[in-house]
């Protein structure tokens, strides 16, 4: 991580979604998730490490608080399935994967913070297959920032935001970062 990100003089950041916006989005996701289903018996949510897990938790809480539905939730780390990890010099730290239910015949909704190249989603689909054979997999993200490198489209999107490749989209979450917000950060010294 570039230490300059924490220095406001080097960073221009613009607020994309406020805490209120995000809460509305969580509520919308909860309703959208159950809309196509007569029963929610086969529905399951899987949060992708790291921020997707926190988003999935919030949607799960929304489902139980306002709709009294207890939807099973799992956590997935896709590091082992990535096709780009070897372009980095050091092996990335692997985080927890925990899917405490049988995936066979489930309608799985994968949740992540930002959809960008689509490579993480591809890796996640491959990873899920080693746990069983879901009946369907859908994908939900808070921000779709474009620049896809694979033929992947999200089923549920918080906001679609055209971005420049030099920009960074940061989804902040209360339980992890102390606030709910989405920022676009323009990093002037980006070497990409």
């Amino acid at each position: 991580m570039n230490p300059q990100w924490h220095n406001p003089e080097f960073v221009k950041k613009a607020l994309l979604l406020s805490a209120d916006d995000m809460n509305r989005t969580f509520r919308r996701f909860a309703h959208q998730f159950i809309e196509p289903h007569d029963t929610t018996d086969q529905l399951a949510i899987i949060g992708m490490q790291t921020r997707g897990v926190y988003i999935a938790h919030r949607i799960k809480k929304q489902l139980s608080d306002s709709l009294s539905l207890d939807i099973p939730m799992g956590v997935l780390d896709v590091t082992f399935y990535r096709d780009d990890f070897r372009t980095k010099m050091k092996m990335p730290e692997v985080k927890v994967t925990e899917i405490p239910f049988d995936l066979d015949q489930k309608d799985v909704i994968l949740v992540d913070d930002v959809l960008y190249t689509g490579r993480t989603v591809r890796a996640a689909m491959e990873a899920l297959m080693s746990f069983g054979r879901p009946r369907s997999i859908k994908f939900c993200c808070m921000i779709d920032r474009g620049h896809r490198e694979l033929p992947i489209v999200a089923d549920y999107v918080g906001a679609t935001v055209p971005t420049h490749k030099n920009e960074e989209v940061r989804v902040m979450l209360k339980d992890l970062d102390g606030e709910d917000a989405v920022y676009v950060i323009n990093e002037p010294d980006n070497d990409e």
Binding site: F80, V94, K95, V96, T97, E126, M129, S130
Partner: peptide, 22 residues
Amino acid sequence: DQTDMFREILDRPVPKIPTLRD
């Protein structure tokens, strides 16, 4: 710490990952 993550793989229905395929 990292061994924990690999221990979990051994309990999967398909205990195989493609990480070292190259």
